[in-house]
Design a protein around this nucleic acid. Structure first.
Lengths: 194, 194, 194, 194
DNA sequence: AATGAATGAGGGTTCATTCAT
DNA sequence: CATGAATGAACCCTCATTCAT
């Protein structure tokens, strides 16, 4: 029961945050959409900030679970295939929940104290995941030497750019496979023609 | 005189938007910083939204002027050098005006009616510039065949990611040259090690 | 059993009212401290107001029982001694229950509909006791002729003033004996030096 | 203009605080009574707390100005007469503004952080005035030796008790002269019959 | 052209009380 | 008897915008 209500509110919040952005999302709209009374909301969350936090926190966990460390044992799939798998799982999650997809692109770093706290933490978390992957790639000799922090920012930015592109609603949206292929090609080889 | 006042308000607004983000920027703070009276503000702009629009509009124009079409005449610099020039000019502009830099990363597409209108237009404009460049690159055989829209989104995202990384304030911020070098390498060659 | 629960709630309420004052005392805090569920509270009292009423009502009864009519029979203690006894018993009760002491000084007639009803009644009751004592004193020739209502208000006020002084937490709090001595001296002789 | 509005709001607030007590006084009611818009209130005061503070602050100043140090020069009025003068001026002020009179008795020490700040300061100020007077009286040999802090509390309490008695609305309210006479007699000589 | 006092819709939050279980 | 999830009226406060001067 309790978890159900919580999920219901979380879902409604996700939608509203996605549509309106953090600041323009109103508790009013959230409870209207969740079909609950004003007070009920505050029974499950201490405030607007907290719901927002919870959404991102759950997402971080989910994302983390979908990214697998590249396995270098013999008999394991080749690294590219493994990487592709992780990416597909991530992209599937993000685009599979359009509300969440909109949410993460539309609330990127508002530098005010409010949103910043958890949102910044969220992106910092994700960026760290990417950074670690890059570092591991360099160790393994698969990735060229580079300013990992900077490139991680660029990579995260690129992914968000693509997510936003899809989310905004393009005609003929590419399939997830196509997206991941373009993404991998871009990330690995850039745009240059050999 | 009129233009002077306008510029003064625009500058103050830029600062406030950069520091606080669109929503938390208050007219109060803007007029305080511009040293004008409340009513005066509304003599020059119809509202908060409008100032924001104007800032972005001017920025688009400036950016456009800094990007030069690649010249294929003989005697011209090689394409890479020309590209590098454009990128340097762009990055110099963005990072040279820290207020503006913060502003563009911190107000990225809040999809609510308010900010969205012009902010979306701004990013659409920029993205189109990139897209055109990519298309031209493909024609010239320099860029591999790809989904130009998607890759343009990724590219824009990557640049914004980097800007944000710098703006957030990292220790030992790289020089503009270093940034551009990393950016070009990333965009052209990706992260893979050959 | 029923009485036990009731007493338990009453005690918790007394503490909370004392610490927070009537308005800032929350049912939440009361049930938390009483270790009962929300609904249970309303099984024993019809509301916040009612608990408050009950506390004061019980206190009035206790106070009344501690004040003894002055006995004029021969063989009885002299009136001053009897008066001193009553005062000591009263002061002992009030200061002996710090929660109650805080409560009565901190909720003195808030004239809003809520608190007023019973709080006013409480003070009216006490004041009447004093008034009667004064009248009896005048009859007996021990008290000078005066506007008994006015002086009773002053007397009650003086006592509350002292209680508050003690309750606020002064360094070196006087003993109850010392307090009563000062009080009697003040009430009987005023401040003048003969 | 500005001072006028401020005074208007202050007056309305005084009335509401007097009638409802601090906590039950609502900004809603205050602005309704002042005939102004919600926002206007916050143009003149930063909040509920601040208006309350201002009322008490102004009152302390007024009270202080009405209490004159007893002049011991030859040719000056005898001390009792001077004391009477101060008391009359004080009582006139308090009872002359029934809203203020209600306010001070109905907001005595709510121990919560909110009201406490300034209200406590107000009563502390007044009590200090009384204490100083007592000390001076002892030096001059007019007042008997006593615990000045305790007696000051009692005295302040007595005055407030009387104010409350009057304010509550008794039939046949005594004149200010009569009140002051009873007060002086009580304070100076107590209730005992010689 | 400039001012700044006034506005009021709208925001987030609290908490006494009810009622189905 | 006991529970605690649900309610919603009411609260304080902010701020973009207007308009008489």
């Amino acid at each position: 029961m309790r978890q159900q209500r919580r999920a219901q509110i979380l879902q409604a919040s996700k939608e509203v945050f996605a549509e309106k952005g953090y600041h323009n999302a109103s508790i009013n709209e959230i409870i209207r959409r969740a079909g609950i009374a004003r007070g009920t909301f505050y029974l499950y969350f201490t405030g607007k900030q907290t719901v927002f936090d919870s959404i991102l926190k759950e997402a971080v966990e989910e994302l983390r679970s979908r990214i697998r460390r590249i396995d270098t044992d013999e008999g394991a799939d080749p690294p590219q295939v493994q990487l592709r798998g992780s990416l597909i799982r991530v992209v599937e999650y993000i685009l599979g929940d359009p509300h969440f997809a909109r949410l993460i692109v539309s609330n990127r770093l508002a530098p005010d104290a409010e949103t910043g706290e958890r949102a910044a933490a969220f992106y910092a978390d994700v960026q760290e995941m990417i950074e670690h992957s890059l570092e591991r790639g360099i160790e393994m000799g698969m990735v060229r030497d580079c300013d990992t922090k900077l490139i991680a920012s660029a990579l995260l930015g690129a992914v968000l750019g693509i997510v936003q592109h899809i989310v905004i609603g393009t005609e003929n949206p590419p399939t997830i496979d196509a997206i991941v292929d373009e993404l991998i090609a871009f990330v690995l080889r850039g745009v240059v023609n050999f």
